Computed example of a mutant assay.
Amino acid sequence: MNYVYIVQCKDGTLYTGYAVDIKKRLEEHNKGGGAKYTRGRGPVRLRYIEVCTDKSTALRREHAIKKMDRRQKEALIQSICLLGKDR
């Protein structure tokens, strides 16, 4: 599987990423590894996850989400919460 995800860092900022193994990736973030941005901002909390059919689709989606402003990302997170799938 290919995942696009948004985590909330300890300082309240949001980080968007791509992973094949989401559980492993979150562990990496929380151990201070993974993305340079999240180092020192842990622990992180998963706020949003999206499953994509292939890597190229996931990377395009990650790029699109990264271009969103915070308000748009919060709306995306809220849309999944309204469906009862809050992570």
Rank of each mutant, 00 (worst) to 15 (best):
Y3I: 04
Y5Q: 11
I6R: 07
I6T: 13
T13I: 05
T16A: 05
G17T: 04
Y18K: 05
Y18T: 09
Y18W: 15
Y18C: 10
A19T: 07
K24G: 08
K24C: 01
R25K: 13
E28D: 10
H29D: 01
K31T: 08
G33P: 00
G34L: 07
A35Q: 03
A35F: 00
K36A: 12
Y37C: 02
T38K: 02
G40H: 09
R45G: 01
L46S: 02
E50G: 03
E50N: 08
C52W: 08
C52T: 05
K55R: 15
S56Q: 08
S56I: 03
A58S: 09
L59D: 05
R60V: 11
R60P: 11
R61H: 13
E62M: 13
I65G: 14
I65C: 14
I65Q: 14
R70E: 13
R71L: 07
R71D: 08
R71M: 11
K73W: 01
K73V: 04
E74D: 07
E74Y: 12
E74S: 00
I77D: 05
Q78P: 13
S79V: 12
S79Q: 11
I80C: 08
I80S: 11
C81F: 00
L83E: 15
K85Y: 15
D86A: 10
D86T: 02
R87A: 04
